Computed example of a mutant assay.
Amino acid sequence: MQILLVEDEAIIAMDIEMILESAGYGLIITTNTVAAALRKIGEQGFDAALLDLNLGSETTIAVADELVRREIPFLLVTGRDAPSLPEQLRSRPIVRKPYGPGEILRTLGTALQGAGMELN
């Protein structure tokens, strides 16, 4: 399983990578900018993605839109509540920061199941 992680905080990215790796998820590709994430989506197929909504001065809304277009399940890892999210993202699975490993894995599992994919 290939997972895209878009996160600009290095420590958080490493934490999520370790959570996913310890749960047996395969290749995890991490990027920290919208441009890099869109490039990676175009270069290789992903089974799922985890997006931090805010990357410094930019948001990952364009990345989310591209994932929707390609029918790739994703979840948001953010400090924001659903009502404060852009309209098109309010129905997406959300893991609120701070989070625990179980929360990341449960929410990812739910997103994958919702897309008809087998859990890891």
Rank of each mutant, 00 (worst) to 15 (best):
N120F: 13
L105T: 04
S22F: 01
I3W: 05
A13T: 12
R106V: 06
M18F: 09
A82S: 07
G109F: 01
F46H: 01
I61E: 15
T78M: 07
R96Y: 01
Q44S: 12
R70T: 04
L5E: 11
E58C: 12
L67S: 05
A13C: 10
E87W: 03
Q113V: 08
E17T: 01
R80F: 14
E21K: 15
A64W: 11
E43R: 08
G42D: 15
F74D: 05
P98H: 05
K97F: 03
N120M: 05
L55I: 12
L119Q: 05
M117R: 05
A115H: 09
V63R: 09
G116N: 06
A48P: 03
Q88W: 01
G45D: 02
Q44D: 07
G100C: 08
L85W: 04
N32C: 14
E103C: 04
M18C: 05
V6N: 13
Q88M: 11
N120W: 13
P93V: 03
R39V: 00
Q113I: 07
G114Q: 10
V95D: 06
L5M: 02
L85T: 02
P101D: 11
G79T: 00
I19H: 04
A36G: 10
G79D: 06
L112D: 03
I12T: 15
L5A: 11
T33Q: 14
G42K: 06
N54L: 12
T33S: 15
L27D: 12
L27I: 08
L4S: 07
Q2G: 01
G100H: 14
F74P: 04
F46I: 01
T110S: 01
I16G: 08
Y25Q: 00
E21H: 13
E87N: 10
R69G: 11
I28Y: 07
L76F: 09
P83K: 11
E87F: 10
R106A: 14
T30W: 14
E58A: 15
R39K: 11
K40Y: 03
A111T: 02
T33K: 14
Q88V: 13
L105F: 04
R39Y: 05
L119D: 10
E87I: 02
A36N: 14
I41R: 13
E87A: 08
A115D: 00
L20G: 00
L50E: 05
S84V: 08
L76C: 02
G26E: 13
L105K: 07
